[in-house]
Structure formats: C-alpha cells, structure tokens
Design a protein around this nucleic acid. Structure first.
Length: 927
RNA sequence: GCUCGAGUGGUGGAAUUGGUAGACACGCAAGACUUAAAAUCUUGUGUCCAUCUGGACGUGCGGGUUCAAGUCCCGCCUCGAGUACCA
C-alpha cells in the first residue's frame, strides 16, 4: 500500500468525529490540563498558512499531555463581533450575523482539514446570546461594585452607600474618578439623583465625561490600544480627541495587582516587560505649592522630590482646571489664545510635529514650600492633564523638557545635582540638562552633600513631617473606555430613568441585539441602535444606544469553555474547581496591551466576587511568531513581453513584477501556468538559465496584492495535513517570526513516506514480532528522550529533525520490529496524527492512538560502553579517540599522551596542563 | 530617546548548564535505476590553500575573561518589536 494521505486523512478525521474522540468531561480521577488558543476573528479572507502555526503547536502539546495521562481541555471558538462585518453591512445591507456565519463556516472547514483535537461541543461564539448574556451579567456586577484600596479588592457598592450615610467620605480609601469630600449629613441631604451621580464616581463600570479617541471615519470611539500613531488600528483612519459621556471600566483600580500578578505567571520576559511599561508604575511624592495672593493650592506629582531646590517655575497642563483660577486679568487674552491654539494641536498633527516648545505665563506665582521662593506659573502642553495631577514643578537643570522650556522663555536654571566625578558649572553654558540619576546634592540647603538616593528619602520624610506633601505612586494605565457607537456588538443591559443609568434585572438577560433597517447612525447622530423599534424597557424607559467594544466578549471566554452550556452561571463551581485556569495559552503578541490586560482585569474582578477560584487566568503564555509572506518576482524586459531569469536580469533593463507564489516551486517558475495566469502573459517569451526560469524573492507581509498568500487547503491538497503540520513546526522556533517558504516542504513529506516504508513493502505490511536488537532499542530510546525533552520546552522544530534522524537510522538498521515501531507511532501521533492512526490500526489496534501511553524512556538502553573523545591541543580539536566509558581521568590522560596521534602535537613542546572533562572533551595545553 | 529581542554556510535553521560550530532539511553537483520523465537510492557540499594525508581561517565589528567562548563581561554597528512629552 502506498502512502495515500488524501484518503487516510479523510478516513481518520471522520473516525475521530464519529467516535467523539476529542470530547472531554470533568473527570476527577485524572489530572486536568487546559490548553487554549487565542480564538480568531473570522475574516472574509479565510485562513492563510500563518494562522495555524500557534494552533498546530498547541494541538501537539494537547495530544502529548493526553498521552501522558492528563484530561486535556482544548477548545476553540470565535471572536465574532468586529468592524469588518459591520462595514460590509453598511456597504451591502447584508446583516453582519450572516456575513459572520458564512466566514465562520469557511474557517471551520479549513480548521477541520488540519486535524485538530478540539472538542467542538464546547464552541463559544461571542455573538451568541447564550454567551453574551454573561458578558452583560459581568458588566452589571462591575456597575454594582467599587474598589476598596484597603482590602485591595472589589466590594459591593451598597457598602459604600452605607458608609456615606454613616460617616461621609471620612477615612475613605477607594478607587474613584475624582476625590470628593462630604459629611454624612451632606450625603443624606442629597436627592436620589445626586447620590446616583456621586456613586458613578466610584463604580467599577461607570459613566463619565471623558476625553475620548473619536474616529470620525468609523463614527465611533476607540480604546487607547485601538489607536496607533494617531490612526485607528483597524482601517488607519485619523483619530481626534473629544469629550463624550461614555461607559468606562475602572481598570486603573487594579493597576497594582495587574503588575504584581505578573510575578506569578510563566510568560516571556518581553511580554511581561510590555505589560509593565503599559501599566507604568512610578513612585514619587505629591507636594502642595501655595499660590501667592490666592487660596488656591497647586498639587504636583514628582519622582524627584530631592530636586525641589532646583525648581525655577511651575507648569500647568492647558486642560487643567487651575488654569482658569490662576490666570491674572492682564494675561487672560494671551492664555485664552494659547488654549485655543493647543486645542487644535491636541489633534493628530501634534504627533507629526517636531517637538516645538510653546507656552504662556499665567501671571500667578507659586511659593516653594521649602524655600518660600516665589516662582512663576506657566501653562504648556508638554504637561499632560491625564497623568499625575496635570501640574509639575519644573527643574530645568535636570530635565530636558524643562530645560528646553526655560531656554525658550528665558527662565533661570539652577543646578542642584553634581554628577559623580564632576564639578558645578555655569548653567548658562549648558547645551542640555544634565543627568541627575546619580550624584551629589548642591545648592539645596538641608540636602547639601547627600547623594541622590539619600536626598530623595530625606525630602520625602521632610515633606511628610511639615505636612506639605505625601508619598504617592502613580500609574500610566488608564481606565478602559467601554462604549462604541456601533451596531455589531453586545448591547448594554442598561436603561435610563431621568438621565440616570440603571441596570436591567439579571433575569431579563440576555438583552438581545435588535434588528435595524440600516447600519448607520441616525440623522440626529445617535448610534445605530437609535434606529431600533421599541428599544426600551417594558415600563417604557429608553435603553442604552451604545454597544460594547471588541474586547468585551474576549475577556472571559476562557471561563465559558469550562462549562459552555451552563444557563445558571458563566461557569459552574464544579467545572471551575476542576479546570481552574489555563495551563498553556498560545497566541500573538499583538494582544499584549489589549486583550491580555482586560482579560486579567475581568478575571481578577470575578475572583474578588468569588465567582472564579484563580486570581490569574493564564499560567503559561507563549507568543508564536508571525508568518510573513515570501513574494516571488519575474523580470520583464522593458517594452517587451520577454521575461529574464533572475540570474541574467543584470544584462537587461527590466521591471520587477510580483508573480503568484502558487505557480512557483522552489523559486522555479511554472512557465505554462504563468502564461495562463493572466491574458497579458499568454504569449510571454522567456530567457532561461540552465533551462529554467528562476524567480527572485523578497520577504513581505502576506497579502493579496503581493500575490504571496498561501492557503493551507492548497498545501493539504498537495501534501496532506500531516506534512503541513510537520512543516510549519520544522520552519523554525515557534516564537520566532519567519517567512513562509515552501522550499523545504519536500523534505518533511519525504520523511513521512520513509516512515510509511518502515511498515509497508509495497502492498505488504512487513512488521515483525521478533525481539528488537540493542542497537534498535538505543535509537528508539534516544528519540524518546529527545522528543520528550523538546516537547516540554516547545522546541518543535528540533523534534521534527529528531524524528528524521530516528527514521533514517531505523532505515539503515532495516528495522521492522513491532516493539520499536509501535512506540515510534506513539511519539509521532501528536505531530502527525493521521498517518500515526492509520499505521497504528494497521498494527492491529482497534482503539485510537490518541489514547495510548507516551513511551517511557529507559536510560539503561542508551548507555554507551565507549566514549569518542575529541582531543584538542591549546583548544583546537586535532583528532578523536575512542576510550572506555568508565576509564578514570588519570588513565585517560596517560593514554592520550602516549597515543601515536599526539606525538606530532607534543613534538618539542612541554605539556603544561591536561584537562579531562569526563564524557565530554580532552584538552592538552602545550607551550 | 527609552525598554526588550536578534545577528551562525547559497537558504531555513541546530548547538538545552562555557566543552568537537554548522545537527536536520532545502538547494546545488556527480552518479545509479529508467527509452524518457517522475519517484527512489548513493556520494559530495562553510571559505581559502594543498595531488592526497593535511593545514589556515571561520558564528555582525573591536576588545577582554578562560585550558576552552556562538554561548560570559565591556564598548560599538545593524535589524526587529514595544513605547513615547509619564514629571
């Protein structure tokens, strides 16, 4: 029998499906293991060869764990809400649900052909009401909770309301949008509406006027991670700043826990680093500066309290509330003009502009609390309203931005730190600020002579003592804006009564997405849901018109897979206690600051509520690399229809033209296919080298316009799914980005054919039941060791070469022993399940190879009686020498020095030292 | 600018803790089988020198540590990713 991959792959895919081979249930008799892929957004283009890379890796690991006795949860689903389906709906009128369903069917067909071990009974689709019911439910819970900084967890908002009624804001330490102060009496005197407004200031899901990233082209608001360089990530449209009343999630309340939680998870250092930077913790002090002739206090945040004696001016952000209060009448016109100017500049061109120093004097003077010096207060857009307090103390000598500002407006510069080994110099001669991370304090009264670290500590103590400030930690992490002016998303379970938002009863969930006539905003500029008929509660109160953003549905999907049919909870207690968390999560690094932050936040919130038992959702995370496209080119002689092979193109004046990579093999053009590819080339002529037309190539993004998209279906049709799986792994390390290049695919296909021939000689199965020889066992057990080790460290490319070595060696030994081949199949099954299942059954088994046991490594079978030592002289390997494995170093030394081959290298020289590393190397130092 | 990665044959890559650099493949060359092709198999293949035995050089560049460096340390270059008036 020949290796007929087409037939046998279909046969076994059907078998696995019919037998529910991949169905999993809670089983307390076995340990669990949860392997998760980041679920895809089903785009219209279908899968290309880059998508399955991570899926194949996770599939191999899942199958490997199953063979090792684990009960493996390996589910798949779809992130089904998204902009492309909605854009398509706007253009064509086709309901996004239909577009999505079509794309999804195509994805499923493509995925099925690769032979993944997903339990499709657990499929989760974010647009399914049975699922988004729980997205809405979680939102309601967030609305009903606040974050207590003392307990470091979310608490019911009712507790806060009770506290307000008994003690007001006295002693309050909770996460909020704005620090408020009132007494119990004041609270009780407020109307219900006023109280509700105040509570929004503390809720984890809250409605507030926020500066948002507004994208006019998409007609919607975007989260920070959906904007890149002033353009929307999807579509690349300009984005501007705008104040809007929006739902937000108080992600910032969890900043500290999101940061410390990183220490507990097994993620790559680079990914942790990206999240740490995004969270952006900085320790410093908040200090109060009084303002001359005014009762206004300026709060500033600084990480360098020690440089307070070097402060020569203050700067406010243009958006700061203090601007108005601190502007003196004589400066009013100038300040107003500046504000108008910066409002324009906060738009996208500000990002494009080279750093331009602008600002205006407010007319007020602040008083340095340590020196009582009067210092001018300026306004400039290099200070951001959203970070710290929106005001800074400027130390131009030691901060490059302050320095540039001081030079521009001719403000004094005072040195307070002398770098190690340097002396104080005249600041007028400086070209830039000088670094002050290390050095000695000067011109700083009580700090003089201290080094920087001592200075920081002493100032912090001093300001606490004198009650002019406090130690404070700031985060860069912002709250997530959660409203989108879109149709194709989860509706909010929210209605409005007297302009105050209220949550629907949980029994009313899911609140399903209504039908509308057009997928566009209303004439009044309301979101598309404004077009829905009867979009109101039974009592006639209007429902929220915004929908939730893309990351809503993906934040807790991993929990739903544990218990996908439960209609009482997102995840039932029993299922959650068994599956706990994701042991291995594989996906792209592009989600580092989006999904992977939101999802951790969402999970921590559910953890605080006692709904899930793990604080961190993803124990281990691997980022697979991107697969780039590899484009091919032909070279047309200008003005002709003549094409010159790559090596000869220098002799002609040519234009490079992209050619479809699917009609090129090993960089050799299929000339007949090329003529048929486009009518323009039907009568093309070729100038060949060695009888071939060789194409040029380049690595580019995989895209239709470059004609370099390779579809996994085509590879499977030509070589089979097992070859595709092995080849994607063989391409290189999982985490590395690499171009798709079919040049090596014959190698792995050949390997599978060779494996097949270990079992079959033509039509006859040639497997024998004889006992295996020691040599055969040695080959097998070396492979068991290598594959087991390499799978554990996700080095799948080296696994494939280990298989190749093993099969080559068994071939050389003419091994056809069942004892060996059966074990080889168990090793190979996770990588190439179809061929393994076929041969497994050919050996007479009638149950699936997926449930056999992973072979056990026996070290005794690989012990060598002798070791081939490389013998080096002065570090250069000169010859090899076989010595008994148990020979002691002293004898080895004597044997080597006495050996004939050594004579040449020892001739006329003295042996200074001999190093013998047992079982590794011998090095002789001569001179 | 800052942070984090990476640089090895014609190509993809291997070398897990400092111990034979280039495993395994692709490609290329020569050969076997064949009327021919495909398929399959055998041999060779880092560079340079040499008739062979052999030798010199060689992991982005320059230094260093070590008996021994692709691997560790210092300084640079190039590429990639993340992030950016974050006080």
């Amino acid at each position: 029998m020949e290796y007929n991959f087409k037939e046998l792959e279909q046969k076994w895919q059907k078998y696995w499906d019919d037998n529910k081979t991949y169905k999993v249930e809670v089983d307390n008799s076995r340990p669990k293991f949860y392997v998760l892929d980041m679920f895809p957004y089903p785009s219209g283009a279908g899968l290309h060869v880059g998508h399955p890379l991570g899926y194949i890796a996770s599939d191999i690991y899942s199958r490997y764990k199953r063979l090792n006795g684990f009960n493996v949860l390996h589910p798949m689903g779809y992130d089904a809400y998204g902009l492309p389906a909605e854009q398509y709906a706007i253009q064509t009128g086709q309901h996004p649900a239909i577009t999505t369903e079509n794309n999804l069917t195509r994805y499923r067909e493509q995925l099925d052909k690769i032979g993944f071990c997903y339990d499709w009974d657990r499929e989760v689709k974010t647009c399914d009401p049975d699922y988004y019911k729980w997205t809405q439910w979680a939102f309601i819970q967030m609305f009903n909770h606040y974050y207590c900084n003392q307990a470091k967890q979310a608490r019911p908002i009712s507790e806060l309301a009770e506290a307000f009624a008994s003690v007001g804001t006295n002693g309050l330490n909770v996460a909020c949008s704005e620090e408020l102060e009132f007494t119990a009496e004041q609270w009780k005197a407020k109307t219900d509406k006023e109280q509700q407004e105040i509570l929004l200031n503390y809720r984890l899901a809250y409605l507030a006027d926020t500066m948002v990233n507004w994208c006019p082209a998409l007609g919607t608001v975007l989260a920070n991670d959906e904007v890149k360089e002033g353009l929307s990530v999807r579509g690349g449209h300009p984005v501007e700043q705008k104040v809007m009343r929006q739902w937000s999630l108080r992600v910032s309340a969890y900043a500290e826990r999101l940061l410390t939680g990183l220490d507990k998870v097994d993620w790559s250092d680079s990914l942790k680093e990206i999240q740490r930077n995004w969270i952006g913790r900085s320790e410093g002090a908040e200090m109060t500066f009084k303002v001359k002739d005014s009762d206004v206090n300026m709060e500033i945040f600084t990480t360098r309290a020690d440089t307070v004696y070097g402060v020569t001016f203050m700067v406010l952000a243009p958006e700061s509330e203090l601007v108005d209060q601190l502007t003196k009448p004589e400066q009013r016109a100038a300040v107003d003009a500046y504000i108008v100017e910066t409002n324009k500049r906060t738009e996208r061109e500000r990002l494009a502009e080279v750093k331009k120093v602008t600002g205006v004097f407010s007319g007020s003077y602040a008083i340095n609390p340590l020196t009582n010096e009067e210092i001018p207060v300026w306004i400039s857009d290099y200070v951001l309203a959203g970070y710290g307090t929106g005001a800074i103390m400027a130390v131009p000598a030691h901060d490059s931005r302050d320095f540039a500002f001081a030079r521009q407006f001719d403000l004094p510069i005072r040195q307070v730190v002398i770098p190690v080994g340097a002396e104080e110099t005249d600041t007028a001669t400086w070209e830039d600020s000088i670094d002050s991370k290390e050095g000695t304090m000067v011109n700083s009264d009580i700090l003089n002579g201290l080094d920087v670290k001592e200075g920081i500590a002493k100032t912090k103590e001093y300001i606490k003592e004198k009650n002019i400030g406090k130690v404070k930690t700031n985060f860069r992490l912002r709250d997530a804006i959660f409203s989108r002016q879109r149709y194709w998303g989860e509706p909010f379970p929210v209605y409005y009564k007297d302009n105050i938002p209220y949550m629907l009863d949980e029994e009313k969930l899911p609140l399903t997405l209504p039908e509308i006539d057009k997928y566009l905003p209303t004439e009044q500029g309301e979101p598309p849901l404004g077009r829905a008929k009867d979009w109101q509660t039974e009592d006639g109160y209007p429902l929220e018109l915004n929908t939730m953003p893309g990351f809503a549905g993906s934040s807790a999907y991993y929990l739903r897979y544990m218990d996908p049919k439960n209609d009482k909870a997102l995840v039932g207690k029993e299922a959650n206690e068994y599956w706990q968390d994701v042991d291995l999560y594989i996906g792209g690094t592009e989600h580092a600051t989006g999904h992977l932050i939101y999802s951790r936040f969402w999970n921590k919130f559910l953890f605080d509520m006692g709904k899930v038992i793990k604080d961190e959702p993803y124990k281990k995370l691997i980022n697979q690399g991107m697969i780039q496209g590899r484009s091919n080119f032909v070279y047309r002689v200008k003005g002709t229809n003549k094409f010159v092979s790559h090596g000869l193109r220098k002799d002609y004046d040519v234009t490079d033209i992209h050619v479809d990579v699917n009609i090129v093999r090993n960089d050799e053009l299929d000339m007949e296919a090329f003529k048929k590819w486009s009518p323009d080339y039907a009568d093309a002529e070729f100038v060949l080298e060695n009888g071939k037309y060789v194409c040029g190539w380049a690595v580019e993004k995989m895209s239709k316009s470059m004609y370099n998209v390779v579809n996994p279906d085509d590879i499977i049709a030509d070589y089979g799914a097992d070859t595709l799986r092995l080849y994607e792994m063989f391409l290189g390390p999982l985490e590395q980005s690499k171009p798709w290049d079919t040049n090596g695919i014959d190698g792995v296909h050949k390997f599978l054919k060779k494996t097949w021939r270990l079992f079959y000689d033509g039509e006859t199965l040639k497997v024998s039941d004889e006992k295996a020889t020691p040599d055969e066992l040695k080959v097998l057990h070396r492979t068991i060791k290598k594959i087991s080790d390499d799978v554990e460290r996700f080095s799948f490319n080296t696994c494939v070469s280990a298989f190749m070595i093993c099969v080559n060696e068994l071939n050389d030994l003419k091994c056809n022993k069942r004892e060996i081949l059966e074990q080889l199949l168990a090793l190979l099954a996770p990588f190439a399940p179809h061929i393994s299942e076929e041969l497994w059954h050919a050996l007479g088994h009638d149950s699936t190879v997926c449930d056999t046991a992973w072979p056990e490594f026996n070290p005794a079978l690989v012990v060598e009686s002798s070791v081939t030592y490389p013998v080096s002289f002065n570090g250069k390997m000169r010859f090899k020498l076989d010595l008994p494995a148990d020979m002691n170093p002293k004898d080895i030394e004597a044997t080597v020095l006495a050996h004939d081959s050594s004579a040449k290298w020892l001739d006329g020289k003295t042996v200074r030292k001999v190093i013998v590393v047992p079982k590794k190397i011998i090095n002789i130092v001569v001179g």
